[in-house]
Simulated scan of single mutants.
Amino acid sequence: MSAVRVERVVTSGTFSLDGETFDVDNNVWLVGDDEEVRVVDAAHDARAIHEAVAGRRVTAIACTHAHDDHIDAAPQLSVLTGAPVLLHPDDHELWSHTHPARKPDGDLVDGRVLTVAGIHVRVVHTPGHTWGSCSLYAPFLDAVFTGDTLFHGGPGATGRSYSDRPAIEASLRNRLLTLPGDTTVHTGHGPDTTIAAERRNVPTP
């Protein structure tokens, strides 16, 4: 039996919202073993992600939120792998701006437990960066996948459509910073961090 592990694929493209466009590099995460994986955030390049999957079964494509740079490759990757695309319902409107003719296949909802390679991954609804932003907590791996909710250095960006600074700070204080301090934070952009390291970077009310 092969070990369960986390693999990172970095893809490059653009992020567009509210009439502005930026060049970005995104972290795409593969969670699984030699037989099957779950993809977290299908960003920019479906073929590069599919190549990294390397023939393994993809159980699902989980989208931490629906900003275009995190979901632009999701439909094509779904075609390539046969895997369903999962997203929190509160981000369906935002998703429709990028993929008006293709809806997600299923819902990420708070407390839902996803299984891949024999381990459990729990969905934690963490609104603020977007209303439907979710983090994925894998206790067996001592890891949480936070999308753009928590970065090395603190909270993700707010101030654009579908976002709210007090909401993201509340999500961090109440939902993520309560996780064990040695939990590795796998982010949507940039380097990893830990829960303990970020506690000092989130304002207290």
Score class of each variant (00 low, 15 high):
V37C: 12
T126D: 04
A117Q: 07
H120T: 14
T130W: 00
V121T: 07
V113K: 13
A101K: 12
A42H: 08
A46I: 01
A74Y: 00
R56K: 14
E51D: 14
R47V: 08
R122F: 08
D107G: 04
D107L: 10
P100F: 10
S78D: 10
W131A: 14
G32M: 10
R122N: 08
E36Y: 11
P75E: 09
A62E: 15
T64I: 04
H97P: 00
L80E: 10
P100W: 11
H67K: 13
T64S: 15
G82V: 04
D90Q: 11
V40L: 15
R112L: 15
I119A: 02
D105M: 06
V109Y: 07
P89Y: 13
I71E: 00
R56I: 03
H120D: 15
V109M: 07
A52R: 14
G132I: 11
G118Y: 06
H125E: 10
G106V: 08
L114S: 07
H70T: 03
D69K: 05
V39E: 00
V53H: 00
L108G: 02
W95A: 03
T81C: 04
S78E: 00
A42L: 07
L77H: 07
V53P: 05
H97W: 15
A83T: 03
T126H: 06
A62H: 04
E93K: 10
R38Q: 10
V109A: 04
V37S: 02
L80G: 12
R57H: 11
H88E: 09
